[in-house]
């Protein structure tokens, strides 16, 4: 068990009258695969969007490496806090090749600022070296997700499972400390789910913590070191996979609560 990497403290997100997330707190440890589960509408994706800067939380703090992610501008969450994410509905650059997708992910490394971007037009600013390094890193991740042979094809032409893997590879190319995956196993067949599990474990073992939202309990229970359960915007359980399986609040949230009056005659 590693040190605490990300610490969410009394996070609240309100959309007008709707309380989507209510004072949720949890920690993500370095070197763990942490799963965030819960029934539909529990507020999982909202928590994700707060962590990755797509929403500004109503209140609460999201601490990582001494920074409050709730206050950082969106693009700096990747650059400085090193949090990368994928989307529930895959968001690839469909008209660009697989390799180009991975190169765009390394934009901030290859082009530290606009001046470097413009100097590169004249071949200045050490751009060639940075570009070559970026291609090497892209090659590494292509290899990891088994897409090397399709590197020069448009991302939009890949089959669904390969698009999911490419999105993960793209997120990894930003060099994250924490990878946030929103339902990575959705729509995958059992064999692809197994491959995904293996990939996530290898990412974790490579030193990047993983935080995932997932409905496929097979995947969650098999690979998670730590599971957090949300229901109606509040945290109802937090523990190892086995603890969660036995937790009666969790069972009630998923299967519906037994109504005591109905039992008593």
């Amino acid at each position: 068990m590693g040190d605490t990497l990300l610490s969410v403290e009394t996070l609240t997100m309100r959309f007008g009258g709707l309380l989507a997330v209510n004072e949720v707190s949890f920690d993500v440890r370095a070197g763990d695969i942490t799963a965030l589960i819960g029934p539909n509408g529990a507020g999982k994706t909202t928590v994700f969007n707060c962590i990755t800067g797509f929403y500004r939380p109503t209140s609460g703090r999201i601490l990582m490496g001494g920074m409050d992610l709730a206050k950082l501008p969106g693009h700096q969450i990747v650059q400085r806090a090193k949090v990368a994410r994928t989307f529930q509905n895959i968001r690839l650059f469909a008209g660009m090749t697989v390799l180009e997708n991975l190169m765009v992910a390394q934009h901030n490394t290859v082009m530290p600022d606009v001046a470097h971007g413009l100097l590169a037009v004249f071949g200045l600013g050490g751009y060639r070296k940075l570009e070559a390094d970026a291609i090497e890193r892209a090659r590494y991740w292509l290899d990891q997700v088994g897409l090397t042979a399709r590197a020069d094809e448009p991302a939009g032409s890949l089959p669904y499972g390969a698009q999911r893997r490419l999105e993960i590879a793209r997120a990894m190319c930003t060099g994250p400390q924490l990878l946030c995956l929103d339902e990575p196993a959705a729509g995958l067949n059992p064999r692809e789910s197994d491959e995904l599990s293996a990939l996530l474990i290898s990412i974790r073992d490579g030193g990047c913590a993983v935080l995932l939202i997932e409905h496929d309990m097979g995947v969650v229970m098999r690979i998670s070191d730590h599971v957090i359960v949300l229901d109606h915007g509040t945290r109802i359980a937090d523990g190892t996979a086995n603890e969660i399986k036995a937790n009666k609040h969790v069972i009630a949230a998923y299967l519906g609560e037994e109504d005591p009056e109905e039992v008593v005659l």
């Binding site: 797509f54 693009h75 989307f87 968001r91 690839l92 934009h107 793209r170």
Partner: peptide, 8 residues
Amino acid sequence: IACRALGI
């Protein structure tokens, strides 16, 4: 949106 998520 994907660009923002990649820190661009």
